[in-house]
Design a protein around this nucleic acid. Structure first.
Length: 382
DNA sequence: TCTGGGGTCCTAGGACCC
DNA sequence: TCTGGGGTCCTAGGACCC
């Protein structure tokens, strides 16, 4: 049996636990500090009751509820809490894996009374962190994850031989992890409306209509697959940052300053993780250029913002536009490798020492103590 | 009048190599 | 002048998740 733990309104609940004044109030956590130009990252249950939910523009949320409480996302807090919950869960002695920042999966084998275990876990989290979790139990991860949503918030649901089909018949296929908007519509056209209908389709049929993806749905649903994610990889596949302007801009200096700043943010994270990147990906959106994106792979891997920035500028030249009007932009590095090469030239060594020193100073005195003058313009508008 | 930001995986075609 | 087969790397696009 797999036990899936899904925290209820995780970010919002943490903020309410920290600040008692927010308890019982409609609250949203925004993905950036500016309360007007962002979307809802998490909504408290009081806010959800008004029809506010993640993904909604905060402007719209405020129009529904003018005295909505707003807290900008504090990533560090959520990561810390997530790690502490993980440690607590480890104490139960079962194998456990992260499914996301607010979801955990536990292989509870054939524990005699899984419901009692679930209750105990829920109480443990409540006692330690003053936040609630919902728990689902089933024979594999995908069904356990589905089950965790049935009695949200602060609920427990178990799918077993006796109630499986009857329960799946009541859940729309779109609720299943991996079925998004497009696949949901596709299934609908084929008359697959509930999770039960999907569950009952044979493997070769699903493979025929959806290829590898279809086969994966079959295997996930019917096998005893324990965990959603493979064993935690030691390095990420990509590292990126993006930014959306309040209004589109065609100020070239301003846009370049932002590309430089995003390059700086990405490079710093690469260095923190001792990674170098060969591939740079730049995307720009704007009223006239639509959605421009391009990537380029270089022979030399780097984690120097200066290099990443200039690679971005070369990619940008491909737009063929002299002064594109830009609304949003992003810089992502992929093709990641562990940084373990030896600097070949003196110049390179000097540059690396410099970057290390800058990182050290910023880590000690504050994030933004030292930065290139060329990003001043972007920072002034952040 | 535009609704964020950070990711993963899969597919398909082109270039190039043997 | 036209002919096979196998493989890798790179780019681009799509779908999905939290």
């Amino acid at each position: 049996m797999i036990l899936h733990i899904d925290m209820d309104a995780f970010f919002a609940s943490i903020e309410q636990a920290i600040n008692p004044k927010l308890k019982g109030k409609p609250l949203i956590v925004g993905s950036r500090a500016n309360r007007l130009y962002t979307v809802v990252c998490a909504a408290s249950y009081e806010a959800k009751a008004l029809g506010i939910d993640s993904g909604m523009p905060t402007k719209e949320a405020f129009s529904i509820c003018p005295d909505l409480a707003f807290v900008p996302a504090q990533q560090g807090r959520y990561i810390w809490t997530s790690e502490e919950i993980f440690k607590l869960l480890k104490g139960y002695g079962f194998e456990i894996a992260y499914a996301s920042i607010d979801e955990f999966q536990m292989d509870i084998q054939d524990t005699p009374n899984p419901e009692n275990l679930a209750k105990e876990i829920r109480k443990g989290i409540q006692d330690s962190f003053k936040i609630t979790a919902s728990i689902g139990i089933a024979k594999n991860w995908i069904l356990a994850k589905l089950a965790s949503k049935i009695n949200k918030p602060n609920g427990i649901a178990i799918l077993n031989e006796a109630n499986l089909e009857q329960t799946l018949a009541k859940i729309p296929a779109q609720k299943l992890c991996g079925v998004g908007l497009k696949t949901g519509l596709f299934f609908n056209d084929l008359g697959i409306k509930t999770c039960l209908e999907l569950y009952q389709k044979p493997a070769d049929y699903l493979e025929q209509i959806l290829g590898k993806n279809g086969l994966n749905f079959y295997l996930s649903l019917h096998s005893n697959e324990r965990f959603q994610t493979q064993e935690a990889e030691e390095k990420p596949k990509s590292v990126g940052h993006s930014y959306t302007f309040p209004r589109a801009s065609e100020n070239t200096g301003f846009i370049r300053a932002w590309i430089r700043l995003l390059s700086e943010m990405v490079a710093r994270r690469l260095r923190e993780q001792n990674l170098v990147s060969k591939t740079v990906y730049l995307w720009l959106t704007g009223p006239k250029i639509g959605n421009f994106k391009a990537q380029k792979t270089y022979r030399e891997a780097t984690n120097d913002a200066h290099d990443i920035f200039h690679r971005c500028l070369k990619i940008m030249a491909k737009t063929g536009k002299n002064k594109p009007k830009i609304r949003a932009l992003g810089v992502t590095c992929s093709g990641l490798e562990k940084a373990c090469y030896l600097p070949l030239f003196k110049e390179q060594k000097r540059r690396e020492d410099l970057l290390k020193a800058v990182d050290k100073i910023n880590a000690r005195i504050g994030e933004d103590t030292l930065y290139p003058a060329s990003i001043e313009l972007a920072k002034s508008m952040k």
